[in-house]
Design a protein around this nucleic acid. Structure first.
Lengths: 228, 228
DNA sequence: TGCCATACTTACGAAACCGTAGGTTACGGT
DNA sequence: ACCGTAACCTACGGTTTCGTAAGTATGGCA
């Protein structure tokens, strides 16, 4: 299915053969274009079938080209996968890290939770890939390690806060992990249900994380008001 | 465990030619024994390499038999995998469900968290398999769906509690997911670090979930005292 | 117009796997 | 000692997939 071709960046509405009765005009993209297109398709496929479940030929076919093109650009399947994952990790890290700047811890939490949900909503496929397992499966590149990257940042923040409040800073990692886990898995659930909208989910997460089950607020609200 | 044959009875390591200068004495287990052994090996391999990354031949080889034996017992790769996953899900569900009986919600939380950590500690490979993705990857058998099963139970409990407290019970799923996610991902982290011990981790999780970041106790303690 | 780099193909080689057909060995009861 | 049956093996067939070698079209530019 999908002799899709030109699915990628095609912003300029290609020469779009339109209802051209002509031969399926070969597309012959520029190197960079083709590369981006392959990355797009790869991301999609890896997201829905996993690394091993996706074949190079399938990717090539969906792009309307033949296998060697993929090898030309990425050296192989792992090469393509690596680039996809790397970009996705960067994107996620940027968004979350960018959100971890506010002053009051509660606001930090709020921002971070929102940022993650935002990433998940915008780059769903990427998130699915990061959650799935990688080729080598081991330590690096896995979601676990990415989560750890983020958790580490949370750790630092929590560590300071703990020290200031007289708690044992050795426990920061545990709490950081718990917080990140809470938001991450809720995100994974939300990606399928999409039931309450983003801002509301974030508000409730903050509610739970900040007040605890013992002191929940009935109608939590985010401090910052967002539209999207 | 079980590098080669004879893992069930003889723990004496290698093929141990023993007094029999004879040909490598074949082991010839009983059907049930072999079946269990294959399940053990399968679980281990699936845990560390994933479903697609594990070959039937590899499993057979590690058991010291040839491929057809596996097909004889389970009909194929998926058959074996299905049994492994099924057993593991049952085990986990039993442990967690069994823990969801106490009266006060806080105790419930405590019990459940401890139960999950206990499962993770005792059946690490199983946990890893459940976390990884399945052959068909989609809906059934996934960790996501398992998590949902558990989350659903938590939902029911939370739903009642919410109603009693005047909160919107429609939000129970969200909070349930967040709680389960918090514990599950913390478990996934703990499985590698093992830093604080189980009971302590559980205590802190309860601390966070119950009191929230805004009101953490400095030295939380579990209500029930456990030794292990 | 004619050159040539770039984008892309067809056609394989080799390896890894799943699953099966059909034959062989050894254990336990008689 | 004999035999049936449970346990196990060797040897393939048939696919799928990665990756590569070697050749073809296309479009910009001197």
């Amino acid at each position: 299915m999908a002799i899709d071709n030109s699915s990628a960046s095609n912003s300029k509405g290609k020469p779009s053969p339109a209802p051209g009765a002509r031969r399926t005009r070969r597309v012959r993209m520029t190197g960079a274009e083709r590369r981006e297109q392959l990355l797009d398709i790869g991301r999609t496929l890896f997201a829905e079938r996993g690394y091993e479940g996706t074949s190079v030929e399938e990717i090539a076919a969906k792009a309307g080209v033949s296998k060697p093109v993929v090898y030309e650009h990425f050296g192989g399947k792992e090469g393509l996968y690596a680039v996809v994952v790397d970009r996705e990790m960067r994107q996620l890290l940027d968004m979350v890290t960018g959100a971890l700047t506010a002053g009051h811890p509660r606001e930090l939490l709020e921002q971070a939770a929102f940022a993650l949900l935002d990433y998940i909503e915008t780059f769903t496929d990427g998130f699915r890939i990061l959650v799935r397992d990688s080729p080598v499966a081991q330590s690096t590149g896995t979601f676990a390690s990415l989560i750890s990257d983020i958790a580490t940042q949370v750790e630092d923040i929590l560590g300071l806060e703990f020290k200031a409040r007289g708690f044992d800073p050795k426990l920061a990692p545990l709490y950081a992990q718990a917080l990140v886990g809470m938001v991450a898995l809720t995100g994974q659930w939300w990606v399928d249900t999409r039931k309450p909208k983003k801002a509301e989910v974030a508000a409730h997460l903050v509610n739970l994380a900040w007040h605890g089950l013992g002191n929940l607020e009935a109608r939590p609200r985010l401090i910052g008001h967002r539209k999207n």
